[in-house]
Design a binder for these strands. Structure first.
Lengths: 222, 222
DNA sequence: TAGATTGTTAATCGATTAACAATC
DNA sequence: TAGATTGTTAATCGATTAACAATC
């Protein structure tokens, strides 16, 4: 298990997966080494940033040659915790909840979706792939049994606060929130907002207000 | 039409939708005024930030009372461009593409999804709600006819670069990219990454590395 | 060796927060 | 009026970028 000594800033944490994506892409085309300058160029950022970010994860490049792709890729896989599975419940078996439940790739990155929950009697008992849809009233019991690390909240905005309360009551401490709403939760619960509406609105603001500056800009929304 | 004099920073742009969410919530419970301190408290940020952010959109609060909710809500609706419809194509009629196509709320916020595209002959011709699935080969022609403002890319990572090339060739200048991959596009094309895998990875890094600091923290991922 | 690229320290830049006069 | 809250200027903080010695 990796021990992180220095605190890693959120901007850095957000960039780490991008480096991993690049290492994968380069690995596939059979390249052995890549420089921080190449990575920076692909991402539209500064090369010093790349070296600093990678350094803080505890990996070292080689002067003169750069970063060994296979080796650093393996390092990232360990550091990013792909083998350390996090169990999650999806709360809300609507279109988005089902789409996320069916998204196979999550597994490769350490996310194991174990079940779905809904309040619609017609949905309870259904199977999404191998994952069963349970009644929201069974959440507390199943959490006791399975001890999921997080709840992925994909219910309509109107119900999101009530459902968040149930999640908190069930003892789950992390909510990945897809509802376009500001949840009120106790201090020890982490809410990670993934508001696609806000994301779209921000994008369209960028388009209308900052158009002249967009060239060469690639925006990451994590 | 709103004219923006000062450039608005991306962190500010990302916070604007949150203020709107709060105004909506407060409006529903019938409150007339809200102070920047209350909003800041709900979002876990500083109240000066709230006042500065709102000021830059051209709205003014009232000393002693705060921000008039109905009025500022209307201001935000105009400023955030909800009535200025942006037409979009969804490229990739998989689970996620279909979920987004069925998401009614986008319309209220100015996003009009007009059609879907796929390369699977079994999907071409299907209707998702009122939206038809076209062949990816029809993209250029339909873009000439409809002039969509953006492409929402929801194909598997393996095909994302090829499909992005088609999107660029069709003349679309904005890509909202849900594929977990770094796209290469010409300088005049904006890529807005919405990589849910990277988002999950960042979240799990937060959980493992910064656990002690998470209290009271609410994270927005836009 | 010379040249390229690293890791790291110092400088810059910009965002956040503090302080406070202006205002209803 | 007094008190609360605003808008804004100044100070702080932290992230990004520049500079450069160390290294293979």
């Amino acid at each position: 298990m990796q021990t992180i000594s220095k605190r890693i800033s959120i901007p850095t944490l957000r960039r780490l997966p991008s480096y991993y994506h690049i290492l994968c892409q380069q690995s596939e085309i059979g390249i052995e080494y890549i420089s921080s300058a190449s990575m920076a160029n692909l991402l539209g950022i500064d090369d010093t940033q790349v070296r600093k970010d990678i350094a803080i994860t505890g990996y070292n490049g080689k002067p003169k040659v750069g970063f060994e792709i296979k080796d650093s890729k393996a390092h990232f896989e360990k550091f990013l915790g792909f083998n350390n599975k996090k169990r999650a419940f999806i709360i809300g078996a609507g279109n988005l909840g089902i789409a996320l439940a069916k998204y196979q790739d999550f597994n490769k990155y350490g996310l194991e979706i174990v079940a779905l929950f809904d309040n619609d009697p017609h949905k309870i008992g259904l199977k999404i792939g191998y994952k069963k849809v349970f009644s929201i009233f069974d959440l507390t019991n199943l959490e006791k049994e399975i001890n999921a690390h997080m709840a992925i909240l994909t219910v309509p905005a109107e119900n999101a606060q009530d459902v968040a309360d149930s999640i908190v009551n069930a003892g789950i401490k992390t909510i990945w929130n897809f509802a376009p709403i500001n949840l009120r939760v106790p201090d020890d619960v982490l809410v990670w907002n993934q508001d696609l509406i806000a994301s779209f609105v921000t994008l369209s603001l960028m388009l209308s207000s900052n158009k002249q500056e967009l060239n060469k800009e690639v925006c990451t929304l994590i």
